[in-house]
Write a protein that binds this DNA or RNA. Sequence first.
DNA 1: ACCTGAACACCGTTCAAGT
DNA 2: ACCTGAACACCGTTCAAGT
Lengths: 179, 179
Amino acid sequence: MPTMPRNRQDVDREAKVAEIREAAVRILRDGGHPALSHSAVAKELGLARTAVYWYFPAKDDLFVAALAEVYAADLGTPPAGDDVMARLRWAVERLTALQPLTHALHERARHSEAAARLEAALQESMCSRLRALLSPRVPAERLDRVTTTIIVFVEGLLTQPRTTSDRLDLLEFLVTELT
Amino acid sequence: MPTMPRNRQDVDREAKVAEIREAAVRILRDGGHPALSHSAVAKELGLARTAVYWYFPAKDDLFVAALAEVYAADLGTPPAGDDVMARLRWAVERLTALQPLTHALHERARHSEAAARLEAALQESMCSRLRALLSPRVPAERLDRVTTTIIVFVEGLLTQPRTTSDRLDLLEFLVTELT
DNA sequence: ACCTGAACACCGTTCAAGT
DNA sequence: ACCTGAACACCGTTCAAGT
């Protein structure tokens, strides 16, 4: 959770950071990781190319901050209910749209600590949600492995050039086999 | 299969192409996709930065040609025998080492026809090999889905930051469940 | 503390000019 | 046909200088 701003200066800075982050989000949603640059953000905000470095000292910082926003917006509120397949369908659909960005995150995680942290957080969040959903349906001693297997499978599904219905068929097959 | 060179000129050109490709392979193995550039190759061969464009008119062409070589060398000759888990272990091990490159290929496949073709060829080759290996062990009406499920799962395994033994445990669990 | 503009060493690509 | 060198519009990053 973010620390409370102590004074007016912190408020101003937070506002500026947010403004830059939102611009980065727009660029990222539009043109993906290759389109994101300090220059592109600066252009959107009418700043000098190098001004953005004051708030985000490296491209990875910009990227991770923007992508965290995107994840929160697109994956933050899953639909209600405890229908496992419905929830998985929702997740696969959302993650498919975000796949190039998640892909870029994984690539950057090899070089950037911040990227590695965001990737781990996403992973952890998806795992714990799915585990909660599966726990009434899967015996306790199998729960961890079944959960991980499905998550890994979904990860694999996303990297593949398949139609959505193809993806969902395969996913249903796997879930049926495991539960 | 490559067409026969018709004359001395074609032979010379093929030799030069091969020389450039091998330099690209070295650079790729060493520093991955980010390190590969026409400039880097030219430097290795003592050419002008732009000379390489005569043979490989875009970075994607250079990348795909080099990566195809890498795949052929590293995945071309699987170990003999029909032990499914042994073969899967071998494949996972090899693919893990190549994962950043395969990753970059997938990224480029969105923009480059050549990259998309190489990605599809790799996929097809892995699928057909695994299907052949599984066919004596899996009923015919399940063979396609089981094969695809395992391939997709392996794909997912590779994108994850896991230890090799962790990967193999999960893979063994899945294979046992499905066969 | 925040922002600018110049600078550095790259990148991918194009092109006119040479042999 | 093959290669060079100049050029273009970028990139990420650093830094001295201003307010």
